[in-house]
Design a protein around this nucleic acid. Structure first.
Length: 128
DNA sequence: ACGCTGACTATTA
DNA sequence: CTAATAGCCAGCG
């Protein structure tokens, strides 16, 4: 899959074990875990950071498996490009995501993150 | 092996 | 402005 060299190298620094793309999920998790508390990012942004710009869907799929991920993955900080909580129905309870976000100071209105533009965290910038 | 599904997105109408 | 479309690719029946 993916492999934007720069991004991958940077990720290896964070999560050294990279050699194969089986780690795609792990890489996604690695990025997700870097999201600062109270900030959010998008599936596409993560995908782009991994060099898989057009595979945002796989990032979402990775999130699907994040329940069993070892260190906890803050999946609630990952939303779609419009700042909408498209994945809330995949949590234990539909209101889980929203609650976690509010707990971190992120306001949510109509399944959409308020002031999303300012709260958005770009993985590429964040990891640089 | 095949086709459908989807926590996405960018593009076109 | 909204709606349909087409890439995307790992699971699952």
């Amino acid at each position: 899959m993916p492999t934007n060299k720069k991004s991958v190298d940077r990720l290896k620094t964070i999560k050294p074990s990279g050699h194969k793309d089986e780690n795609f999920f792990e890489m996604v998790y690695a990025v997700a875990r870097q999201i600062p508390k109270g900030r959010v990012t998008s599936y596409g942004a993560i995908a782009a950071a991994l060099g898989a710009k057009s595979s945002a869907r796989m990032v979402g799929w990775a999130m699907n498996s994040c329940r069993k991920a070892r260190p906890v993955v803050p999946a609630h900080r990952v939303v779609n490009r419009n700042g909408m909580l498209s994945g809330k129905h995949h949590f234990e309870t539909p209101d889980r995501m929203e609650k976690l976000l509010k707990k971190e100071g992120v306001l949510v209105k109509d399944d959409k993150i308020v002031n999303f533009k300012n709260l958005f965290w770009d993985p590429v910038e964040g990891l640089s």
